[in-house]
Every structure is written in C-alpha cells, then in structure tokens.
C-alpha cells in the first residue's frame, strides 16, 4: 500500500535510536550488577554517565535510565536510576516517591514497561500512554530486561515523547494520500494522517486488531521487527 514502507522506515529509525541507548544502559547495568554481592542502589551511579550521554539536547530520547527489579537490591525494594531532560534541555535526575505508605507512591511492578519484559524476557515498547510515574507526558517507553545468571534484575529504558515521534513521522504520513496509522499491539494509535482516528484512540475492536497482528507482513500491515509497533492502512479496518 502506498506510503507504508516510508512510514515504516521512520518508525524503524525511531526505535533503533531509542533501543541503541537502552542497550548501552542495560549492558552497563548488567556489568555493574554482576559484581560481587551485595547489590546496592549506590552502585548504580556508575550508570549515570552512560544515561546522561544519551540525553543530548534536541535528541529523540527525552528520558532514560535503569529501573531495578522489585526486591533486586539489598537496600531499596524499589529503585529508579533515571534522568529526564528539563525545560532547559539538561538531564535531571528523577526523584520519585519510594515510600510505599505515601500517597504519591505507585508500585511499578505491574506497569507494562516493567511487567512485559519481566514476563517475556524480551524487549518491549509501551505506549502511547500517560506516564504518571515520571513526566506526566504522553509517552512511548522502550525497555530491555537485564538478567544476570538467569535472575531478572530490572529493565533498562528510554522514553520518547509522542509529540517527538509524531513530528518525525508526520512528513512520511503526509506524503501519501492513503489513510495510514501507526499502532501498537492493542491497536492504539500513536500517530495517523486521519482526523477521524487520532493518537490514543483504538483503531478498532480487539478481534479486528488480533486479526491484523496474526498476519504481520501483509500489504496493508507492516510490523517493526519483533516489536509491538506496526503501520496499518486504515481502509483494511471496518469504519
């Protein structure tokens, strides 16, 4: 279908730059956490230079870091070694509420960017979603599980704002007259060239979406590698 390949190429560029940084962070986390026990939160400051180097001004990635597996560290049951670019585009360390008794505390154990790589052992893309743990922004999160001696110790991750992804995708989306959408595994739209089906909407019911994903390389649907992101021609779906 006209335009699908061009949109797919932009999507692949976004995912490979996000996962490029996440791989570096995850590798650094793996080597830090492979040192002799005990594993303590303070040691994770070794990752900081790797993380902040990936948050260059004007880059695709807005925030990045390592999120410790629940209970993986000796001295903190929950821990985020995470940086995000502030309004002046400088990386700032994220301070989150880690006291489970406080109102602002939310356990990340069940959030998809953590739970899916934990469960599957595979890298994952979460979103678009409202990231209430970190930036309150509409976000895509790219995560890779960190495993040492077959024990899951957390995830390396990077955030890309939906607005940033849209900015990159829009030229390709606008250059075709075919109505196209970039969707995730639930059929949620990341970006589209149709005013009727917007970012955040579900492109169709669960059955239609499952049927699309069952045939990942048709002329109306193309998936990005092993990831839960794809480009779909909207005419392939019921209105």
């Amino acid at each position: 279908m006209d335009g699908i390949v061009e949109v797919l190429a932009v999507l692949e560029a976004i995912t490979s730059s996000a996962f490029g940084l996440v791989s570096q962070i995850s590798e650094a986390a793996r080597s830090t956490l492979s040192r002799p026990l005990p594993r303590r939160s303070g040691e994770l400051t070794r990752l900081d230079p790797v993380i902040t180097a990936g948050l260059a001004p004007g880059g695709v990635v807005h925030g990045a870091g390592f999120v410790a597996g629940v209970g993986a560290l000796e001295d903190a049951r929950w821990w985020l070694e995470w940086f995000a670019r502030d309004a002046e585009d400088r990386p700032q360390r994220l301070v989150v509420q880690s006291d489970p008794q406080a109102v602002g505390f939310y356990d990340y154990e069940h959030l998809p960017w953590y739970a899916v790589p934990h469960r599957t052992g595979q890298r994952h893309v979460t979103g678009p979603y409202v990231d209430y743990l970190c930036t309150d922004d509409y976000t895509l999160t790219f995560t890779i599980p960190v495993v040492v001696d077959e024990v899951f110790l957390g995830v390396g991750g990077a955030d890309v704002k939906v607005a940033t992804a849209e900015q990159l995708l829009l030229p390709a989306l606008r250059s075709t007259s075919t109505p196209l959408a970039v969707i995730n595994e639930h059929g949620r739209i990341l970006s589209s060239n149709s005013g009727r089906r917007l970012s955040g909407d579900l492109v169709s019911g669960p059955a239609d979406v499952a049927a699309l994903w069952a045939d990942p390389d048709s002329s109306v649907f193309r998936r990005v590698a092993d990831l839960p992101l794809a480009v779909v021609a909207l005419e392939a779906l019921p209105a």
């Binding site: 409202v130 309150d136 509409y138 909407d201």
Partner: peptide
C-alpha cells in the same frame, strides 16, 4: 489511610486510561 490511597490510585488509573495528559 489505605482506603484513601487506593481511592486516589483508582481515580488516577481512570484518568490515565482516558489517554489525555491534560485531563490527567
């Protein structure tokens, strides 16, 4: 105390499921 936290969390999850950062 636990009811208050759980209720706040529930309302937040509904707002997040709306997919609107502003409404959230």
């Amino acid at each position: 105390g636990a009811r208050r936290r759980a209720d706040a969390h529930f309302s937040i999850e509904v707002a997040v499921a709306a997919q609107s950062p502003r409404l959230y």
